[in-house]
């Protein structure tokens, strides 16, 4: 079955609907599974672990040193504290999927 998204944004509710349709989980289980999926990824990252989801992409952690910043309103200088941030690197497969779709759209335009 081809799932048709109803909006321009994919949300947890859409993912739960797909688990109901395709995996056969009941509505409650589907909703819990979606929550658990993101919760496990979040917990691994919080513990300092990289998350590698082959075919989709990798979530990595970067430790950034303190750097000088500025309050854009007042111009006052305030240091931006050292912090750990999450970065996402899309897999070659995902990047390829995005490019192929875009190339198709362009072709459709130029044929009109």
């Amino acid at each position: 079955m081809q799932y048709e998204a109803s909006t321009l944004t994919l949300t947890k509710a859409d993912l739960a609907d797909m688990l109901f349709d395709k995996v056969g989980l009941n509505k409650r289980e589907a909703k819990d599974m979606v929550e658990a999926f993101f919760d496990e990824i979040r917990s691994a990252l919080a513990e300092g672990d990289t998350v590698k989801l082959s075919g989709f992409g990798n979530f990595q952690l970067r430790d950034k040193p303190q750097r000088p910043g500025r309050n854009p309103k007042t111009g006052e200088e305030i240091p931006i504290s050292a912090r750990r941030v999450v970065t996402f690197h899309a897999s070659q497969k995902l990047k390829g999927m995005v490019e192929v779709h875009y190339a198709k759209l362009q072709q459709r335009y130029s044929n009109q």
């Binding site: 998204a5 944004t9 994919l10 993912l15 797909m18 688990l19 999927m97 995005v98």
Partner: peptide, 16 residues
């Protein structure tokens, strides 16, 4: 199923 849906959404220009 979830990763596939997310990849397909993005590929079609739908944000997540």
């Amino acid at each position: 199923t979830m990763l596939d849906a997310m990849a397909r959404s993005l590929a079609q220009g739908q944000r997540i």
